[in-house]
Structure formats: structure tokens, C-alpha cells
Design a protein around this nucleic acid. Sequence first.
DNA 1: TACATATTGGAGTGTACGCTCCAGTTCTGC
DNA 2: GCAGAACTGGAGCGTACACTCCAATATGTA
Lengths: 189, 189
Amino acid sequence: MARYRVGLETRERILAATRRLLSEQGIEGVTLKAITAQARVGAGSFYNLFDSKDDAVFEVVRETIDAVDPDPAGAGTDTLADLVDAFVAFMTGSSPIARIYLQLAGRGLTDAAVAARVLRSHRRRVERFSDAWQREDPSLSEAEAELLAETMLAALTGLGMTALMDPRFDMRAHARRLLPEAAMVSGRG
Amino acid sequence: MARYRVGLETRERILAATRRLLSEQGIEGVTLKAITAQARVGAGSFYNLFDSKDDAVFEVVRETIDAVDPDPAGAGTDTLADLVDAFVAFMTGSSPIARIYLQLAGRGLTDAAVAARVLRSHRRRVERFSDAWQREDPSLSEAEAELLAETMLAALTGLGMTALMDPRFDMRAHARRLLPEAAMVSGRG
DNA sequence: TACATATTGGAGTGTACGCTCCAGTTCTGC
DNA sequence: GCAGAACTGGAGCGTACACTCCAATATGTA
């Protein structure tokens, strides 16, 4: 939507403000007023650059997830243990944005538009896990690998929820148990 | 809070209205206005009997979960497969209240009061799974069984989220794979 | 019956928030 | 330097919603 340089800069300012608010105050802190005040921008400017408040929030969350990707280039060099660790890092790391991610997923349960976005990113992640799994165990069929990946990711998501609600919960230890025997024995990661 | 007969009856009417709205319209349909209209009750009466709107919602969700309990009496007769099936039934069954349950869990990520309630019921469930696991494999230590139960429940929750978002997702098939080899081979359930 | 207490309805309060509107201004390509 | 499109701020709109207040009434008890 932005076409001029100033517009692109404003867009960045808005995203930075959203990121900061999301990190410091969680999803409730992110009102349009808060974003526009933090970014020193009028509501009109905001809506000139984004379709909705959610638009900006989604963008920030996506960026944050991408930031922990162990193989951003998609070169196929990531192991299962890498992916699990990255997920655990995202969930238990200092950034409160993991919370927002799960809350968005929750909203996806009743909001079709949100569901579509969440599912899209979910599928991409399943793909990554599935590929890594096949790389480590080439005897697996694609379908089997995908089944395993789906289950593992589900478990990781569930463990993440527990971890975020219960600070004493050791997500890493639980997540490690999800790895296939081979990976555990060889002590990868 | 209710002490007279009429009060208890009104309380029931309110819960029934909440249950119906939750089932038919999801969490967004449940406004105070909707509840009180459906129950034919004034807002004052509502707050005479409940501390907050959430109070009523939580109660209904709790009842719904209890309704699929394979061993409500706590006699210790439920197998792991039973528990898994019950969870899958709750998630994929016709009642949309599973959605609400997961959404509440999502809210628990930022709302401490909600988190406390969610965690309490989560702990109870882990206990049930853990006990069943030990019953089926007495060689397991309590700690090991709890670890296994926690992971399994996390996976089930994650699978439930995917299932609710993606109608084509076969939760039952995935959930079955979580059972220990023995249970799968013996074809229990 | 008399009394304390519970129950009732629903108008009203306070607030929060996403988004629109639009007149004025900058920007960019030609 | 001109035209036209992009950008800007921010007042204000519309709405939604949880909860309070309170006078009137019903209920249970001694």
C-alpha cells in the first residue's frame, strides 16, 4: 500500500511501535491509540498503510517467528533437534510474543480469517519438521514423516502453552523426549 | 451466594442459558445481555448470583468436560485409551465448547486469574493420565508416569487445536499414535 | 405476623476501542 | 514547477459491553 519513501518509513515506525508494545505490554497493550501514539502517527496514516490493527500484529509475530529459524535460507541443513530447540527457544525465550502467537491461534478457533493465517504458517512448519525427519530417517515415507511431524508439532504447541502458564514447567526437558530415540542417544544439540 | 430456593432456580436458568449460547454461538455470543435475555433475568439478578460473567462461563465449561469423563466416580477403572478417547470425543464432538475451553486456555496466557483456573484443571487431568499409565505399566515410577502424562496431554491439546481449526484433520488417528505400543497392539478401545 | 435478608429488573454508568472522514500537506515523475 | 496521487493528523462516530445501583418485592424463620 505504501508507495512513497515516507510511507515506507512510516510503516516501519508503526511496526516498530507495535513490536515494542507487544513485547512490553502483551496483546492488551496494543490498542490503535497506543500504536499510533508510540509511532507518533495519526490513525488516518495507520489505515493508509494497514488494512486493520490485526494486520500489523500479524506482521510482527511473523517476523519474530522467522527470527529464530535455524535455517532461514531453506537450505535443508536443519536437524529435527535444531527445529525443536528453535521452537522451545521461541516459546520460553524472553520475548512475550510467543504468548501472542498462541492467543492468535486461540482466536483462530472462531475467527475464520485468523484461522487461515494461522493454518498457513502451521503447514509451513509441519513441512519443515517433516523434511528434517525424512532427512534423518530416509526410510520414512513422506506420509509417515508428515504424521510424525504433525504430532510432534502438536505436542510442542501444547507443551508451550503449559510452559507459558506455569513458569516452573521445564519445557525443554519435555520437548527433548519427543525426539526419536536415535537423536536422543547421539546427543545431538 | 444463593440461599433461597428461587435463587438456586435462577442460577440454574442462567447456567442453562449460558450453556445454550456457548453451544450455539460460541464465546462471542455470550454477552451479559444475551445471557440475561435468554434466561429472562435482570442484570442485577445475575450479579446477585455470580461474581462475573466469566464465573458462569467457567462453570459451564467445567460441567461439559466432566460430562465425558470415562470414570466420573474416580474408581480407577479408566485405561489410557479411554482417557485419550474421551479427550478426542470432547474435542471433536458436536459441542463447540471445546473451542471455548481452548480459548480460555489462551486467555490464561495473559490473565493470571484465568491461568490459575486452567492450570488447576490441567493438573487434575495430568494426574488421571499418570495414574492410568502406571496402572498399565506398574514398572513406571510416579515421576516418569507424570512426565509421560504431561507430554501426552500437551500433544492432545495441540492436536485438538489443529483439529478445531482444520476440519479435515484426523485427530483420532493422530491421538492413537500417542498411546504406548502395548495399548496399540492389544487394540484396546 | 413480623422481620431480616434474599431476590429482582433494568435503566443507567463508564469506558474502551476500532475505524472513518477529510481537509490540508507532501511527494514523485515528467 | 505542475499535476495527481500518496500521505498525514486527529476529531469524532458508532458501538459494544461489563457491571452498578436501588427501590420494589418475595422468601424463609421464629
